[in-house]
Structures are given as structure tokens and as C-alpha cells.
Design a protein around this nucleic acid. Structure first.
Lengths: 400, 400
DNA sequence: CGTAGATAGTTTATCATACAAACCAAGTTC
DNA sequence: GAACTTGGTTTGTATGATAAACTATCTACG
């Protein structure tokens, strides 16, 4: 449904633009805000004053003069509120507390106990509630308190309805996790796919308009930032590149298809390569430290492990080239569990991409994500959905 | 660069919203516009009056009463200006004249003569100028005249700079076709990739927010509409799914990679399947009617041709499933030359997608494009870039 | 020093825009 | 034909951004 703009809407948009300018450019003065937004000084001042009254912004003190009166520098009032990010994985759950600036204050990782049966939802929601409550208790008292909780799930999630379609390894289907958690906690809850969270975090951190975040772990998923926004697709399940074919007549996949990327480029695939390579002592799978142990053995020079990682890297490269050629993202961030094996994988990945990417796609930047990227992206669901709105989309309006 | 909104900007946005409401919902009255935009009647009236004064909108006469005074129905003043669309293909060039409503008034198809050598650009620009001038001459006199020309090219194009990166079969590299044509014609020129144009046309026609347009011809490209907007990627070359791998160790491709989709699902691939199948009388390739003749033979029941088309269809299905799983488009439109062989291909395509798409992606709609989709999308580049702006993106703003 | 000029920020008056409410117009329903 | 409904215009008002004048405070420079 289309909407028109009235005065109060205009003011809200402008206030958001001012807040965003401070968020991205602090410390900054009222005068700089006005000039960088092409806005009158009086308007900027008035909006800043409102933001200060609401505790979202604070004055830092006088800055350096540039030939005249000293500017009063502004900054986020970063301790006026907090957000919580949660990263749910198969074997463990990570929770982190952030202030408004996105600075991490606490990070905690617990084992996750979920039997993949009818009790899975109940066990999951109980552990989520518990970890959220514990994290909330860590936040100092503040004007806005806990603004919300963002949760990243490893599977298909509809972020607008807060519904989980399907979490493959936990065997959770069709569950409104949003409803259940709001009922228990009475605070705003945001949910999304883990790869999407990773993509959001990278967008924010690097200020990119197009990127792909590869979440490679037990399975493989992709988060896509297109035109500066997360692309979620028609039903919120875009990015299932793990189930795109890289070998039309290849291995049967659990999804019913053949030759899916994640059959060749995942922890599961690593396990298979190890088995096929006749490796003797393979760590138990899936367990919280399966990959860790494999990396240790490769570090120690075990050729079976080194070869298995290289094969994984090569196949990551095949699928990654597909993502790159299909989406021309400019920037690719590799995250997920397998990113911790980057030193055994990335040479092969880059080698494959260098000859399979077409044209300018060969200039694509490929980098490794920080391990806490997903959890911080989950937290940023809160802040970006409540505080930031993109006004840029209106910049290039032409006349009617 | 961010921007603030002042009063005149607000009015421009609202005027655009009104225009858009008329564009999409005509015939419509002032009162309906106001209520559907949540806008005051007086404001809607005033904006409509401006649009009428500028000849963009006209009054049609009184509509049916709904229990009170009869409404004055409004419509686009569709003959107040015209746009031209051009579809450049390897063997021919299609030009069409449209009014503002997107109704086609003339369609003309010429053979294209371009030697793939140093003279290519010059030959191309000459023929483009000539066909545009001829089409311009067909437009009736009007208030705004020819508003602009949109051109779809079969290759990598940067639409924002008007630069052609590369047209594979015409061997044109790095050419600012925009600059050259503007210099010759002195009217606004818009260029884009053919698959993108197809995607734009389908978005407009079907009112979709997510879709993928498959342009399958000598090569294969994909146009992506994400969140209601064309996704062009970092460098404007997104959608090169033709060069995504569907067989990691497959056939060598001209791009340097192996197993690219378009090696298996294109007119070229059809030719190869025919040769491999030992077919005797194969029509010359590439020629303007290679495919036409193949379709005729398949229609006539020649099993070689039928089998070759089925194989093409199967492989279109593989890559299409990748597009669907990766992008969750909800809607897929198959266009390009090969769409004219739909009756020999689509059974296989749908069969493959039905088991290779995951989850709700199995509900994806797959339809065949009209042959003039690309050329009308090219024309719509003009209208959408000059007349339509998306205000919807502001709808879901939350408080700061 | 002290003054001119520059920069930061506030105050005041003005203007543009959307809005609400009253109003006029012209139909339907009973 | 009276009461009601809907479409559209007119009029007065509130809001918000702006321009311009003004205060405050700094640097530069003679």
C-alpha cells in the first residue's frame, strides 16, 4: 500500500536522517549535520535537541575550532539502551549484549541441548528464554533499557512474521518463535536467518550496498544485500544456495535433489572426504568441536586432513563463483564454522574463483568473517529496525 | 549521500504518489486517490490539478454514482508523450513506439548487420540512430513529444553510466553508447541489459515485488527484481547466471570456466545436441531463423529435434532451480528466443524444478514471456525513470 | 592587544504545505 | 421530496523548514 507524506512524517524522516548522520559520523557538530544533509541549521539544531531530550544523543564537549566558534560535538548516547543478539547453532547457542553503538559488552556461549523430536520447540524456547534473561540481567540500568532481542536461526525463517519454517538439524517445523518468546519476555523480538544476520552485520560494519555473506557450516547458506537492503525473497527464504546444483548428476541430497552445493562444501562434506580418504581417527560428528579437531590435525600437517580441506575449499569455490556471477556482489564475506579453517581452505577458494568468475567479477573482494559476526548481526536487527531508516532512496527523484 | 526532506520535496513525493496511483489504478477519482493514499481530499485535488495542467493526467468524464455525487474519473493523458523501446539482438533489431500508458503503437523488426570487428560500434550506432529516427517520425504530435529512448542490449551493460562493458557475439567492448547516441539525437537515452528489461516489463505488467526473468537465447541471462527494484549488482553486471556452474567438471566455456549453464541450455547447446544426436539437416547457426526451423521440425514430429529440445529443457530446469533456490523469486518468467520453443521445452523444465526446488520454492510460478517483453521493458526504462518513484519504502517507518 | 573575519549555534519572521472542517454539488434511497 | 451519501472545493489553521538577523566565540593578523 502506497502512502503519502505529511508534515509529521517529514519531520520523522528528517529526525531519522539526523540520527543516522550522528550514528555514522560521530563525533559531529550540529553545523556539520546541517551541511551534510543539505538542511537548514535551525532545523538540524531543533532535531538534535529533540534527540538529546529523548536520550538518544548526547553532547561530548567542544571540539577544535576551524577558524571560529568551537563546535559542540555530538555522539550517540550509547549507554542509553542495550540490545541483545543470539546466534542459535546446532550444538551451541551464543548470546551477546551490545550498547547502542554496537559495542559488545558481554559474550557468552552455551551448549545447546535439543532432541530433534516433538519436544524440540519446548526445549529450544526454554533455553532461549533462560539465556536471554541472563543476558538482560547483565545490562546496566539505562533510559531505554533493553530495546530488543535479535535471534539468528540456522534455517528457513520468515523474519516479517517471526515464523520458523524449518530448522533442518533440529527438526523444528512451522513454529512462531516470535509469539512464544514475546509471551514469555514481553520485549521486542526479531528473528532472521543466520546468513542474513551475517550479511546485515557486514553491511553495517563496512558500509556496503552490495555483498554476499556465505555461512558455511554443517550446511551452507547465503545472505544477500542488494541495493543496500537485505534481500529476503518472496517468502523470506532466499539465499538457499546450499541447494543449488553444482553437479547436475551428483550426489543425492536430503532435499530431494542431486548435486547440491552443500553436499560438497560443508562440514558434512569434510567428513565424507575424510572417510573416502581412508582417514582413521575421525572426530565425532556433529559435535561442538568436530571442526576444531580437524583444523588441529591439518595444522599438525596430517595430509589426509589437509587434502580434505582443500577439496572442501575447491567446492566452496565452485558455488561461490556461482553466487558471484549471479549477483555481482562486489564483496563476499565467508563466515560460519568453516571460516575457522580459512587457512586451509581459502587458497583453493580464491584460485577457483579467479578463473570461474566472469569479467569484473574477478575483482570481487573475498574476506573472512569474524566469528561473532552473526551474533552481532542478530543484535543489529534490533537497532536497524528501530532506529535507522533509509532516506537515501529518495535522493534521485526526478520531476513529474 | 543522505538527504533531508523539505516542503517542496514532500510535495514532489506526494505528487509522484498521486501520479502513480492514477497510473496503476485508472480510471480513478480524486476521492479514491485521497483515501487510498491516506491523504486529505484537498491535497489530492490540488496535486491532480497540477498534473492536469502539465498534461500528464486528464479527466475522462463522470463515473457511476456510489450513492452520491458522481465522481470525475481520471486517467493518464496517455497521448501527451511517447517513448521508444529498442531490443538489440545478434541478428536483428526490434523497435517499438509506446504511449505513456505502455500501449504499443508500432513495432518494427529489422535485420542487423554488424561485422564483429573494429567497425562494429560505428555500424551499430548508425543503425541505432536510423531506426530511432524512423520510429520517432511515427509519433503523433504531443505535449511532451518523445520523452526518451530505452535500449536493451544482449550483454553486460552499466545502465547508470550508459556504458557497454561487453557484447559477446558482436565483439563490442567498453563503449559509451549513451554518449554517442545522445550526441546524435539530443534526447534522453537509457540503456540496460536485455534480461533486466524483460524483468522490468514483467514487474510493471504483473505488479510483482520479486521475480526472475530468464532470457534464454544464444546465451542465457537473468534479470532480477528484488524488493520491487531491479537488482543490478555492484558493477551493473548481475544476472550472469549463464556462467554459473551446473557441472563442476563439465564442458569448457568461452568465459574460461567449465560446466557453465549456458553451455547446456541455449541455442548453441541445442545445436550441439542436434550434432551429437547425429541429425542430418541442421539449419545454419546463428541465423535469424535457426530456432524457428528447429521448432518446425519438432512440430512435425522429428524425434531428433524433439529429443534435443527436451535435453535443453532439462538443463534449463537445472539452472532455473538454482536461480529459484538462490533467490526465492516467487515468480519466474521465461523469455528470450527459446521461449518460442516453449511447447517442446517447458514440460521438462517444470518436471526438473518440481523436485529440485526446496520448500515453498516448489510453489514458484513459471510462465512464458511474450516475444515483445524485452522491447517493452526497454521502453519502460524511460517512463519508470522519469515518472515513477517508489514511496512505499517509507511506509514501515518506526519511531526514533 | 584589538579588530576583522570566520564558524557555531539560536532566535525570529516568513512561507509552503498538508490538514480539518465547513461548504457546495449532485446523486440515491425511502 | 426529505434525509442521507458521496464527490469535490473553499477557507482557515497548524506545522515544519527556511532565510536572515543575531549572539557567541574562536583565529588571524597587524
Amino acid at each position: 500500500m502506497a502512502t503519502s507524506i505529511d508534515g509529521s512524517m517529514m519531520r520523522r524522516l528528517n529526525k531519522t536522517a539526523v540520527f543516522r548522520t550522528i550514528y555514522e559520523g560521530s563525533p559531529i557538530s550540529r553545523a556539520e549535520i546541517a551541511s551534510s544533509l543539505g538542511m537548514n541549521k535551525a532545523t538540524a539544531s531543533s532535531l538534535v535537541d529533540e534527540l538529546i531530550a529523548e536520550h538518544f544523543v548526547m553532547e561530548l564537549g567542544y571540539g577544535e575550532s576551524r577558524g571560529g566558534r568551537k563546535p559542540m560535538m555530538l555522539d550517540l548516547n550509547k549507554t542509553s539502551g542495550y540490545s541483545i543478539g543470539i546466534d542459535v547453532q546446532i550444538t551451541h547457542i551464543t548470546a551477546a549484549l551490545y550498547d547502542l553503538s554496537g559495542t559488545i559488552l558481554h559474550l557468552h556461549r552455551d551448549a545447546l541441548y535439543v532432541r530433534p523430536d516433538a519436544s524440540a520447540k519446548e526445549m529450544l524456547v526454554q533455553q532461549l528464554e533462560s539465556v536471554i534473561r541472563r543476558t538482560m540481567a547483565l545490562a546496566p540500568p539505562s533510559a531505554h533499557g533493553i530495546i530488543g532481542v535479535g535471534i539468528a536461526f540456522p534455517g528457513m525463517v520468515n523474519s516479517s512474521t517471526g515464523q520458523i519454517h524449518y530448522l533442518p538439524n533440529l527438526e523444528v517445523h512451522d513454529w512462531s518463535v516470535h509469539r512464544d518468546l514475546v509471551a514469555r519476555l514481553q520485549i521486542p523480538i526479531f528473528v532472521d536467518n543466520d546468513a542474513n544476520c551475517g550479511a546485515l552485520a557486514e553491511r553495517q560494519q563496512r558500509g556496503l550496498k552490495q555483498l554476499a555473506f556465505i555461512n558455511a557450516g554443517i550446511g551452507i547458506g547465503v545472505g544477500i544485500i542488494a541495493n543496500g537492503e537485505l534481500y529476503r525473497g518472496q517468502d523470506g527464504i532466499s539465499g538457499e544456495f546450499g541447494h543449488t546444483t553444482i553437479a547436475a548428476m551428483g550426489l543425492r541430497c536430503s532435499c530431494g535433489s542431486y548435486g547440491c552445493w552443500e553436499q560438497y562444501a560443508s562440514e558434512r562434506a569434510l567428513l565424507r572426504y575424510l572417510e573416502e580418504g581412508g582417514t582413521c581417527h575421525i572426530p565425532p560428528f556433529p559435535s561442538a568441536n568436530f571442526l576444531e579437531e580437524c583444523v588441529l590435525r591439518a595444522d599438525a600437517g596430517d595430509p589426509h586432513y589437509i587434502r580434505a580441506f582443500q577439496t572442501v575449499g575447491q567446492h566452496i569455490g565452485y558455488g561461490l563463483s556461482n553466487v558471484i556471477n549471479g549477483l555481482n556482489p562486489g564483496y563476499v564475506i565467508v563466515g560460519g564454522n568453516l571460516a575457522s579453517a580459512a587457512r586451509h581452505i581459502m587458497n583453493e577458494v580464491e584460485n577457483v574463483v579467479s578463473y570461474r568468475a566472469v569479467s569484473v567479477n574477478r575483482n570481487v573482494q573475498i574476506v573472512i568473517a569474524d566469528p561473532s559476526t552473526v551474533v552481532s548481526g542478530a543484535a543489529s536487527l534490533v537497532i536497524s529496525s528501530m532506529l535507522l531508516v533509509d532516506v537515501d532512496s529518495l535522493a534521485d527523484i526526478r520531476s513529474v
